[in-house]
Simulated scan of single mutants.
Amino acid sequence: MIVRQFLNDTPIGASYLVGCGGKGIAAVIDPIREPSVYLRAAEAGGMHIAFVVETHIHADHISTGRALVGATGADYVLFADAPVSYPFKGVRDGDELPLGNVTARVLHTPGHTPEHICLLITDRTRADEPWFVLTGHTLMVGDLGRTELATSVEEGARDLFRSARRLATLPDYVEVLPGAYAGSVCGRSLSGKPWSSIGFEKRFNKALRIENEAAFVAHMMADIPLPPPEAAKIREVNAGLQTRATPA
């Protein structure tokens, strides 16, 4: 397996290249930078990009996903019910993206947004058990994603509670590779360390440790930070519903 993490600082976010060097197949998840960055990384690993995956429709930055699809001919992957205006490969909970000896299983994890997905990654040359999970803005290091950017804060919080409890059932050794880290407007108490594990987050992530739904909703509704500048417009641009916006 080949994994590359790309940390972006303006805006703050993390993208990933994941694939099988032996079979030469890769996916890019949540691209932020210019397509050439991911093309060079894939070429260096002897892989072609077969899938470009958005964990959700972002509200804090303009995605370069469609540009990367245009440069590669890859399938553009989003949750099947994602409210977008352009063609894409729709996936649902339990679907798998084949990456040679690597598989990426889709977990529908609504809450941060209704269409949010995570990807549970397994390298079958190592084990049949999952190795890590790409969590987007659902579970991050130190906190969970905010819930009011695409729906009401309460509705999003109830969905996120169920999604978080589901992720907490993964084995403790499964690594967490999130889509954001400290400084991102999409979370509150985020760590500057951009990876963790399910076990560590279950012990030390304050929001993930709340096991009562009502208490969780109250926690998520308290001290809500200001939304990203032009969040609604940016989300519409990423959904193909507008052509211009000024990112944060």
Rank of each mutant, 00 (worst) to 15 (best):
E175S: 15
R235E: 09
G65C: 02
R92Q: 11
V69K: 10
I198K: 09
G111Q: 06
K193I: 15
S191K: 09
P130V: 11
V3N: 13
L208A: 13
G179L: 04
L107P: 04
A82R: 07
L68V: 04
A104P: 02
V69Y: 07
T246S: 12
V133F: 01
V18L: 00
L167G: 08
R166K: 12
T55H: 15
V3W: 15
E129I: 06
L78T: 09
A248Q: 12
L39H: 12
A150K: 15
G111S: 07
G240R: 12
L139Y: 06
A82H: 10
K206Q: 11
G142F: 01
F200C: 08
F161M: 07
R146V: 15
D60I: 09
D75P: 00
P227F: 04
R92Y: 07
G187M: 05
T147G: 11
P130Y: 10
R244K: 13
A41V: 00
T122W: 08
A245M: 00
V217I: 06
D30E: 14
V28I: 13
R188G: 11
G13S: 09
A239K: 05
G100R: 06
S85H: 06
A42K: 01
P228V: 06
L120A: 05
K23P: 05
T138H: 00
I117C: 11
A168H: 03
G156E: 08
G21T: 09
L149H: 14
